[in-house]
C-alpha cells in the first residue's frame, strides 16, 4: 500500500509544481517582479481545472477554444516521443548486448567514442541530417523525406529518426555502464564457473538485474528527449504540443501542455516502479 501512496503523493506534488511553473510568465512584467499577478494567475489556473472547456488561446485578435484541437497535437507529439524512446531503447539494448561480448579493450574504445558523440549539441545533429537529405536530393533527385510539413500534412519518419539518434547514444552508454557494473558482481563469476555460456549469462542474469538500473536512469534520457522534441518540432515546422507551447506561451497553455506530457510519462514510470518494487523488494525512486 505504501508504494501506491508514494506514487500518488509524487503525482500530486508534481502537478502542483507544474501549476507553479506554468504561472511563471505572469511573474515578470518586463523586468519587474509582480508577485500579486503571479498569485492571481495561479488562482486562475487552478480554477481552470474545474472548467477545462473554457480554456482558450489567441492568435492575433482571434481566440480559439483550446480543447478539441489540442488532442491532435498532443497525440502527434506523444507518438513521436514514445516511438523514438522505444526504438532507441531497443537499439541501444541490442548494441549493448553485442558490445558486452567484445573484449574489454574494444569496449573502452567504444565508450570513448560514445563520450565524444555525446558532446555534440543536438542542433548540430539536426543540421547535419537536413544537409544530408538535401545533398542526396540534389545528386539523385530522390527526396527521401519531406523536410518540412505543409498545412495539415503530418511527417513522422524524419522527426523520429532525428529524435532517436542522441537518446540511443545516451542509452547505449548508460547500458554499457550498468551492464559492466552488474557483470562484475560475484554471482556472475559463479554462473560462469558453473560452465554457462557467456551469452546465456548475459541474457538471463546480467540483463535482468541491469535493467532495473537502466530503468532508473531513463528519466534523464526522457528529459533530454523533451528538449530535443522542442527543437525537432521547431525545425520541421510540425504542429505538435511543444511548438504549440512555444508559440502561445500563456500560463494556461503551458499548464495544459506540461500536464499532458507529464501524465503519460509518469504512468510509464509508475508501472515500472511498481514492477521493480514487487519483484525485488527494493525501494526505488523514479
Amino acid at each position: 500500500m505504501r508504494i501506491y501512496y508514494r506514487i500518488l503523493l509524487k503525482f500530486v506534488l508534481t502537478t502542483i509544481g507544474i501549476v507553479l511553473i506554468a504561472a511563471i510568465p505572469a511573474l515578470f512584467q518586463g523586468i519587474k517582479v509582480d508577485i500579486p499577478a503571479y498569485i492571481s494567475t495561479v488562482g486562475t489556473i487552478v480554477s481552470s481545472f474545474v472548467h477545462p472547456n473554457a480554456l482558450t488561446y489567441s492568435i492575433g485578435q482571434e481566440t480559439y477554444a483550446l480543447f478539441p484541437d489540442f488532442w491532435a497535437r498532443w497525440g502527434y507529439s506523444i507518438t513521436l516521443i514514445f516511438t523514438a524512446f522505444f526504438i532507441s531503447f531497443l537499439l541501444a539494448m541490442v548494441l549493448t548486448f553485442f558490445t558486452m561480448l567484445l573484449s574489454e579493450k574494444v569496449r573502452e574504445k567504444i565508450k570513448f567514442l560514445l563520450f565524444l558523440g555525446e558532446s555534440m549539441p543536438d542542433i548540430l545533429v539536426v543540421g547535419l541530417f537536413m544537409v544530408i537529405v538535401i545533398l542526396i536530393y540534389k545528386h539523385t533527385n530522390i527526396l527521401i523525406f519531406n523536410i518540412a510539413a505543409f498545412g495539415d500534412e503530418k511527417i513522422l519518419l524524419l522527426p523520429i529518426i532525428v529524435l532517436t539518434i542522441m537518446p540511443t547514444l545516451l542509452f547505449y552508454r548508460i547500458m554499457i555502464y550498468d551492464f559492466e557494473e552488474e557483470a562484475s558482481q560475484l554471482y556472475i563469476d559463479v554462473a560462469r564457473s558453473k560452465g554457462l555460456k557467456k551469452q546465456k549469462v548475459l541474457f538471463s542474469h546480467v540483463l535482468r538485474n541491469a535493467i532495473i538500473n537502466i530503468f532508473l536512469h531513463a528519466k534523464s534520457v526522457i528529459g533530454f528527449m523533451l528538449s530535443n522534441l522542442l527543437i525537432v518540432e521547431y525545425v520541421f515546422k510540425v504542429d505538435g504540443i511543444m511548438r504549440f507551447m512555444f508559440d502561445h506561451f500563456v500560463p494556461e497553455v503551458l499548464m495544459v501542455g506540461m500536464l499532458f506530457m507529464f501524465v503519460p510519462i509518469y504512468v510509464m514510470q509508475a508501472i515500472g516502479q511498481v514492477i521493480i518494487e514487487k519483484t525485488t523488494g527494493r525501494q526505488v525512486e523514479v
Binding site: L9, K10, V12, L13, T14, T15, I16, G17, I18, L20, I21, I24, P25, F28, G30, I31, K219, I222, G223, L226, S227, L229, L230, M242, M245, F246, F249, L254, G257, M258, M261, F262, I265
Partner: peptide, 26 residues
C-alpha cells in the same frame, strides 16, 4: 521529500522553453 516532488515538474518542460518564455518580451 515534498520539495523534490514539486521540483519534479521541471523535468517535463525543456529549460530552453522556460527561458524563452521569460526572456522573449524583454
Amino acid at each position: 521529500k515534498y520539495f523534490s516532488g514539486l521540483v519534479n515538474g521541471f523535468y517535463y518542460i525543456p529549460t530552453a522553453l522556460v527561458c524563452y518564455v521569460l526572456l522573449f518580451d524583454v
